[in-house]
Design a protein around this nucleic acid. Structure first.
Lengths: 154, 154
DNA sequence: CCCACTTTTTTACACTTTGTTGATAACTTT
DNA sequence: AAAGTTATCAACAAAGTGTAAAAAAGTGGG
């Protein structure tokens, strides 16, 4: 499974195409290394890019944790799949991102692609920078999440 | 696992490359001894360099103790991965540090690489020197941290 | 203690890969 | 068929990578 790391500034051309940075490309370990799924993030004003294999893992997680006969779950599932798109790398190693999605998260010309374990987030550059937490906020958050219980390292 | 000691003055060339000091290289004990991850430090104006193995240990801990569908956890993961990059030693034993990161911590030509257990800090030389605590401040800090309770040695 | 030798560091240059842009061709949709 | 969208290609610019040689620093033997 791919684990991505590193954030890269990239540019979107007027057709909505982004060159997928070569260092990220090298980190893709997937059966079909040029198929991806993009999607609006659930919580933040950004897009999320999954290699196809990782996406399938995510949908499996959803399947196993929901019951389509439960009305609320069904609602959730519909929303979860709304605004997803399959994208492929073209012959130049670029991804064509649907205009619709770009608009949803306010992406213009400058973006940041940020590797985060199994997925890659795509942000409008300004938003990525202003979304940054102060170091003390981060410290508090870290302590709340990792600081309480004994850590599992496996 | 590598434990680094010693601080070394190094120079960055105009392309952002740093010769990894030979004495530090000898201290690397890792599966892939020429792969590293650099990252902006959380608290200080410096970069931190982890041997890949050490980094993977860190991310494994994070992966197993967080759930990316939890909003706060996801926020934490994003901050954790912000400003990271994978770097490798080239054929001359140099590391190419991303310009973006060098700018973030005000590194020009002269830097200090300082071993600190599992990681190596990279400072702009001037900042490293001015960041030094006065000896009495340091003494107070030492006493507060180590001086109260009986010490554990394992 | 000095010299010769090895290793490490610095510098410069050439070359390859990656990134950017624009233009054109093929395809869909209306 | 026209308009819009998507794919393919080519050319240039920028960044990254590798090689080599010169300079500096460290090491050991006489």
């Amino acid at each position: 499974m791919s684990t991505f790391i590193g954030d890269y500034e990239c540019k979107v051309d007027e057709k909505g195409r982004v060159l997928f940075p070569s260092s990220l490309r090298k980190q893709v370990k997937s059966e079909s290394p040029n198929k991806f799924v993009v999607k609006k993030d659930i919580y933040e004003e950004c897009l999320v890019l999954y290699p196809m294999e990782e996406w399938e893992l995510q949908t499996a997680i959803i399947r196993h944790n929901t019951n389509p006969y439960n009305k609320e779950h069904n609602l959730f599932i519909r929303e979860f799949f709304r605004g997803t798109a399959e994208v492929t790398l073209d012959s130049n190693g670029r991804l064509l991102l649907p205009k619709r999605l770009l608009e949803m998260v306010g992406i213009g010309r400058d973006i940041v692609m940020a590797g985060m374990n199994g997925k890659i987030e795509i942000w409008a550059k300004e938003k990525y920078e202003t979304a940054q937490l102060g170091s003390s906020d981060f410290a508090n958050l870290a302590e709340r999440i990792l600081g309480s219980t004994p850590l599992k390292d496996e």
